[in-house]
């Protein structure tokens, strides 16, 4: 696992760059491992508590290892009205994660919800590994996963 240390030179050891460091760790490790955050606290002099607060405040920071593929289902108002609930349920069943989302046991998939991706005209919307797919139905979503991500 790579550590963040090489990026020290990029930002300078400032409290205000703490989020950049954390993003860097997440980019390298896929999530924010505890030891890395501890090391970050030691190196920057920022209290570990503050780092942990930030990590839990922003939804995009992950404290748990993520699956190889991330599937995000939008549950914003527009998507909800156009049936994102069923899409989510279907995805949970296909990927083998709990009804609340999460990472599958084999570590292959992570399923999560977001509240509006800002593309409501395409509702309901899912994002697979950063690629947006609009107007999905439970069936279409299942097909997509089975064809490309199995």
């Amino acid at each position: 696992m790579k550590t963040f240390c090489h990026c020290n030179n990029h930002y300078g050891l400032e409290n205000s760059s703490i989020i950049l460091f954390m993003q860097n760790i997440q980019r390298n490790c896929g999530y924010l491992p505890e030891d890395e955050l501890k090391r970050l606290a030691d190196n920057t002099g920022t209290p570990l508590m503050d780092i942990y607060s930030i990590a839990t405040f922003y939804k995009s920071f992950k404290l748990e290892p993520q699956g190889e593929h991330t599937i995000t289902v939008c549950t914003g108002t527009a998507c909800h009205l156009r049936g994102s609930g069923e899409v989510f349920e279907e995805m949970a069943a296909v990927l083998g994660v709990g009804s609340g989302g999460g990472t599958s046991e084999d570590g292959k998939y992570t399923l999560e919800k977001v509240n509006c991706l800002g593309a409501c005209a395409l509702a309901p919307l899912i994002v697979i590994d950063g690629h947006y797919h609009g107007n999905v139905t439970p069936g279409k979503a299942r097909e997509m996963i089975e064809e490309h991500y199995k």
């Binding site: 209290p47 570990l48 508590m49 503050d50 942990y52 607060s53 839990t56 405040f57």
Partner: peptide, 9 residues
């Protein structure tokens, strides 16, 4: 100390 703080939101 900085032992406790706010978590989540």
């Amino acid at each position: 100390g900085e032992a406790i703080g706010y978590v989540d939101r």
